[in-house]
């Protein structure tokens, strides 16, 4: 049962900001509701006010602009999955969006809600971080950009202030010579991730690795983990299987899975991270070489 509350349906972002400035602490924004309503049913949150973001036209879009993509906060996963633009130019986002939830959930769930919910096992954040995504945050004091990995500060904790909301997610277009891969392990086809890995490999013309991102999610720490070790080990090198395998082992040392997860033990997550990171890197490398991601 949901608690009694008052409901608002603003049509502009500035209305939301004004409302939050006044009632931020007692308010919950609602987008798809797939996380919030579950929490409310369990009595975990009891907002006095509910502000629906879904009727605000300026929050829902997928726009290519400059060197990247702007995804409005209330864009649903289904819209991302079905966007031709994303499928062709940002296959990593397509793969991660598709791996998420079920058709019904993807019809409802939004990218903004997913990020703000900050579940360590969420699927799209690792892909976004691998593409150096930034959150465009708006509030009373104006707007600010935050790299997504800094946006997540703990299990279901974000850097958002109570008077702020996410307006957009900005994603850089992968540079020429890039290949990406998203891999997820769950117990069944539609399960929260036991482990997920998003990888981007960008190669120089001479075949050396110019830039790499290895991002691991699935409850391997309070937030997803962007592996710095992988970047140090691989950037500037010619990528070959032994080096990739070694990197995968190093990445696994950065992970700190919780022992309380019912999905798998820390041991399992660490063991399998070695496998998934290796496979994702190999796959991304292959794609980079084949020029599949542009």
């Amino acid at each position: 049962m949901l608690n009694d509350l008052e409901y608002f349906e603003p049509e502009t972002i500035s209305d939301v900001i004004t409302f939050l400035a006044k009632h931020g602490k007692d308010t919950k924004l609602i987008a798809g509701g797939t996380d919030l309503l579950v929490d409310m049913k369990k009595g975990k949150v009891k907002p006095k006010y509910l502000v629906n973001l879904m009727k605000i036209p300026e929050l829902s879009h997928i726009i290519e602009d400059g060197g990247g993509l702007r995804i409005g906060a209330t864009t649903t996963f289904r819209e991302i999955e079905e966007s031709k633009l994303i499928k062709e130019k940002y296959p990593l986002l397509f793969e991660a969006a598709r791996a998420m939830g079920t058709v019904q959930i993807r019809n409802m769930a939004t990218i903004g809600g997913n990020i703000c919910n900050a579940l360590p096992s969420a699927d799209i954040p690792p892909a976004l971080v691998a593409l150096d995504a930034k959150a465009k945050i708006v509030g009373q004091s104006g707007e600010r950009f935050l790299p997504l990995e800094e946006f997540f500060v703990g299990i279901r904790k974000t850097a958002l202030e109570s008077d702020e909301l996410i307006r957009e997610v900005h994603v850089k277009s992968p540079p020429a010579g890039s290949g990406t891969a998203f891999l997820k392990i769950g117990r069944t086809a539609s399960d929260l991730a036991t482990l997920n890995v998003a990888v981007r490999v960008t190669l120089e013309n001479n075949g050396a690795c110019k830039e790499v991102r290895v991002v691991v999610g699935g409850g391997v720490g309070p937030t997803l983990i962007r592996s710095k070790r992988a970047e140090t080990l691989l950037e500037g090198k010619i990528l070959e299987e032994p080096l990739i395998e070694k990197t995968a082992r190093e990445v696994s040392k950065e992970l700190k899975p919780r022992p309380t997860s019912i999905r798998a033990s820390p041991f399992y997550k660490i063991e399998v991270s070695k496998v998934l990171v290796k496979r994702a890197l190999m796959k991304a490398l292959g794609r980079a070489k084949a020029g599949e991601d542009r």
């Binding site: 409901y7 349906e9 509701g33 579950v38 289904r78 019904q104 959930i105 019809n107």
Partner: peptide
């Protein structure tokens, strides 16, 4: 589009 009525507030289908 298929959605879940158990996670939809009635007020939002206006």
């Amino acid at each position: 589009e298929p959605v879940l009525s158990c996670l939809t507030l009635a007020i939002t289908v206006d």
